[in-house]
Design a binder for these strands. Sequence first.
DNA 1: TAGTGGTCTAGACCACTTT
DNA 2: AAGTGGTCTAGACCACTAT
Lengths: 239, 239
Amino acid sequence: MTSAVDGGVPSHGRIPKYYAVKAQLLNLLSELGEGALLPAERDLAARFGVSRSTLRQAISELTVEGRLRAHRGQGTFVAAPKIVQPLALVSYTEALREAGRRPGRRVVTVEEVPAPPELGEGRAWHLERVLLADDEPLGVESTYLPVGRFPDLLDGFDPTTSLYAHLAGRYGVRHAEATERIETVLATPRDALLLGTNPAVPLLLMQRLSVDRAGAAIEWVRSLYRGDRIGFETRLRVD
Amino acid sequence: MTSAVDGGVPSHGRIPKYYAVKAQLLNLLSELGEGALLPAERDLAARFGVSRSTLRQAISELTVEGRLRAHRGQGTFVAAPKIVQPLALVSYTEALREAGRRPGRRVVTVEEVPAPPELGEGRAWHLERVLLADDEPLGVESTYLPVGRFPDLLDGFDPTTSLYAHLAGRYGVRHAEATERIETVLATPRDALLLGTNPAVPLLLMQRLSVDRAGAAIEWVRSLYRGDRIGFETRLRVD
DNA sequence: TAGTGGTCTAGACCACTTT
DNA sequence: AAGTGGTCTAGACCACTAT
């Protein structure tokens, strides 16, 4: 049986030229193999008989999908597969190690600011860090913590190490529960600089509000992950 | 305190022109308000003193972010806010009703196919449906179910209604647990047609494998949601 | 038929990296 | 200096929608 039930869906229109080019590029990628250098855009455009703009639209989509990686001044390379990270209350360090990658962090900002609304009134520490996997940017993470609860947070804390480990060790804090929201957004020029990508690449925006066993808000985290390099996995149970 | 710890992040380069245009458009959007018709692309390009291509790059990003919605032949409109759907083992029907929207489905395909590897050997039913919210496409969902377990699935099942309700009512099936993976991808021309969007819009790809209380695989689902119209929310607990 | 967004072209200049 | 990807332009044609 292969009956198709019509539902009012329009028939396939003509296929845009850049999409045919994308299909040809996919063949080329599998021939070249991971890590290989792609021919220059101007050469590929000539080979496929399209303008450079049209070729770039195809390359742009493959970049978004994580199949290609462009380096200004160098060229475009066939990329490695995406990382899959569990969606759970574990630290970035732990999760990445289990995925067989080398975690790292680069501190961008440490400052005290008015608390974001999610944490209520008062002041908050703002810690902004670029998350690295094998020394390459995977995401940028902004963590906000209430100053009232952690007044001396910065004493003896190395911001390139695990914050979760520090909170547990120094304050005995246990993350009990969190609400997390996931959506796609585009990079701002600032995000793009931090992530080493271009503004047209979609990111996974994750916003998390964590509470401890007493129900008090511990942290609010806003993370942007490169959609071309990472996906997330979770287990769902019936309540 | 507002000390910034240097982490080797490059200083801001020059801002691309399309990004300045995007900022101007954002101002315009808040003046116009939800549902308003935007001036034509050629007029906006003239107003901002840029080429139509550059204006379109700005408009394209705002479309991806869900702030604008383009209709070919009609114009571009200021969009409504994103839907937020809980990430849980509840049916689409239920979840959307709770979000205050009117759920709907449009059947694209009903067929019997070789089972996808996730379901093991054998044959599978493939049910492909466009998910609607207030009559507009929100996503496209492909569900695969083992024919061996549900041999007479199609008898007395209206594919425009809830599959979960049918499985529970006819077979007494309880979804006990699922593994779900989330990432971003781009639409193919076929997806774009089904979703009424253009291929440059990133989608949220969700792949779910559900098992019953006995641990047997019940279904494998591959869903594509429009990233400009929906986000997902989940609650995390420490094990 | 007129106006809209979607696609495509040929050419230009830029910032960046390598030689 | 030469080559790369990133941005931008002016103009063209298309499919679609409304009148």
